[in-house]
């Protein structure tokens, strides 16, 4: 069984937001509109945080793309009263939208604040033509439901189908999420962390690799490669 993980190289990432936009397009995250966005209700499963330190002109900036960290010990799963969110296949933290009651305990529990709530039926409010243009592989979420990055789980299912068709072992199927595919700087690596032959497993062991808030013990499967220390 694979253990899917991601490595994001902050040296390469230039904050262009291609990954975030690709994620929104792939997983049918609609724009929430001006007034909702101003209230901080924007839905972007992969958000890019800017960290700007120093005083002009001695500045240092890091753009940090943050998808769901897909923790091995996810706090969101523990607090869900209806078992709508659970640790699924390949270590992907999955969510059953139909089961979610919108209590938002998981949002409060997530230390990375990467879960998003549908305050309204945003997808249903889109013009009919735009609804038709949605990705049919991913179901839109109704009002009152929490959602988050799924590591493009639907692509994993598709890859497994392909493997079956080609007579290969579906358990060894390999796939690539939309963010990795879109990144122009090739800053995102994705693969099986338990397979030592993969680039992602190698990079996760790098001396530059770290995870966000490791001390909380959530064991996230998203690693960051620090910027190289050559900035003058």
């Amino acid at each position: 069984m694979s253990r899917w993980g991601m490595v994001i190289d902050l040296e390469k990432c230039n904050g262009c937001e291609a990954c975030a936009a690709a994620c929104q397009a792939e997983c049918n995250q609609p724009p929430v509109g001006e007034s909702e966005a101003r209230m901080g209700r924007k839905i972007s499963w992969l958000k890019i945080s800017e960290e700007l330190t120093g005083k002009f002109p001695d500045l240092h900036r890091r753009m940090i793309p943050q998808p769901c960290m897909q923790c091995d010990d996810p706090p969101c799963v523990r607090v869900c009263p209806v078992h709508a969110t659970y640790l699924g296949e390949g270590g992907i933290v999955a969510q059953i939208y139909q089961r979610c009651i919108g209590c938002r305990f998981c949002m409060a529990a997530c230390p990375y604040t990467v879960k998003y709530f549908n305050w309204y039926n945003y997808a249903g409010g889109l013009p009919a033509a735009e609804q038709e243009a949605m990705n049919p592989e991913v179901s839109p979420r109704p009002r009152g439901v929490v959602e988050k990055c799924t590591f493009c789980h639907h692509r994993l299912l598709l890859a497994k189908d392909q493997a079956r068709l080609q007579g290969n072992d579906p358990a060894r199927a390999v796939y690539h999420p939309a963010c990795e595919e879109a990144c122009p700087a090739k800053a995102i690596y994705f693969g099986d962390l338990d397979d030592s032959t993969t680039e992602v497993a190698r990079l996760a062991q790098s001396h530059r690799a770290s995870r966000l808030m490791e001390d909380l013990g959530t064991n996230p499967k998203v690693y960051y490669l620090a910027r190289k220390e050559n900035h003058g």
């Binding site: 937001e17 291609a18 975030a20 936009a21 929104q24 595919e181 879109a182 122009p184």
Partner: peptide, 8 residues
């Protein structure tokens, strides 16, 4: 690769 403008 693709950027937000192409995706939209």
């Amino acid at each position: 690769a693709i950027c937000p403008k192409g995706l939209d």
